[in-house]
Design a protein around this nucleic acid. Sequence first.
RNA 1: GGAGAGGUGGCAGAGUGGUCGAUUGCAACUGCCUGCUAAGCAGUUGACCUGGCAACGGGUCCUCGGGUUCAAAUCCCGACCUCUCCGCCA
Length: 423
Amino acid sequence: MFDIKLIRDNIDLVRNGLKAKNACANLESILEKDQKRRDLLVELDQLRSQINSANEEISQLIKAKEDPKPKIATMKEISNKISSLEPQAKKIEEELHSLLLMIPNLPHVSVPVGSAQENKVVRTWGKTRVFDFKPKTHIEIAEHLDIIDFKRATKITGSNFILFKKAGARLERALYNFMLDTHTSEHGYTEIFPPVLVNRESMIGTGQLPKMEEDMYRLKDEDLFLIPTAEVPVTNIHRDEILSEEELPIYYTAYTACFRREAGSYGKDTRGLIRVHQFDKVELVKFVKPETSYDELEKLVGNAEKIFQLLDLPYRVLLLATGDLSFAAAKCYDIEAFSPGVDKWLEVSSCSNFEDFQARRANIRFKGKETKKTTPVHTLNGSGIALARAVVAILENYQTKDGEVTIPDVLQPYMGGMKKISK
RNA sequence: GGAGAGGUGGCAGAGUGGUCGAUUGCAACUGCCUGCUAAGCAGUUGACCUGGCAACGGGUCCUCGGGUUCAAAUCCCGACCUCUCCGCCA
């Protein structure tokens, strides 16, 4: 949730931040509503205060066996005034709230200003494979090895769904087990297995709603949503809670299926595994103290990178420019894996610091041990990592001349010792 | 899904129209006492909104939303959740 006080106190900062993010909001109208709301509140509070003291007097009159009728008459009068003001106050409160929910987070100062062209490659890891043959795409490889059945997935559900088979299915399972094991035993994350259906409050809490409802799968009868990422249920674990300072930082990791409608994004990038409506992902979520959140972001990216290093897959890390940042993010690194078959860098992870943006929406705070103050926590999350695209990277990077795929060393134990996928 | 019971502060648990943000117990914190620990004694302990430079005020919150009333934790209606029994089911 956007902090109204920041708009009141520092409107230029907000205006510039929104501009950098290519977002607009009528800040003047928000401030106007805010003023009107506070004026109404002051008036209402005064009336309520009168009611409270009158009420006390009435009870004393009753106790003293005196006639409370005249006092009751004045109370009735005040009470009527209150009932006429209350709906106004409530209405403006709601209007203000929904306006604030539509304002995106502001970018951090360290984020380059501009559109996606301003994204910066921060570092590149590993060597791009050199093949003595023309590398095939993951689609050709998967169909040749009969480990993914695109046609039948379409028959069962619809376009852009996938059906893994045999070693393909096993590879999927091996990958998320390997990732969960790495994050829990080497990076200190606590494993979570959350629901994949969440309610509206949870979706608002992490910022998917109200703005992006059309991108979400929603149940017709229940007002529940299929999660687009485990970020939603996992961040909402601590919604409406006050944590103690000693509990922080909290690190969670979760494997879930993720569901995205990808409305309006049909085009050339949608073949194969690259953009599908359901994919598996291992997510990393952190709740931290504000002063540590940017250090925590660097560590988070490092944890995601580690997966690629262990898999020995070349990747690069991008720092996203302001215009490419998502709604809730203040700063974001993308990890892209190089896939020689499609000859592209594919986004396989996105690691963001949301600062207190989600924490304000979801009402997640912590109490200072010394200060005794309650302050919103900072939340972060990152993919560690997204599976369908990691499979693309593995199939295309580890393909051999005769159409087989070598299994990366770290995955072999998870594949029952299998060293390569053959027909 | 059907029938019944219930949802009060960190927890336990009173309160059934007016002086109730709410008795009390536990837990926690701060003093005192004590060789140490325990016990004991005294006090403190919620969140949110809002006025004010401040000192210091005012308001809201007894699951949530409506209603009755001058006045609601308390009465009425609805939603959600929990428990018990029955049905169904992995």
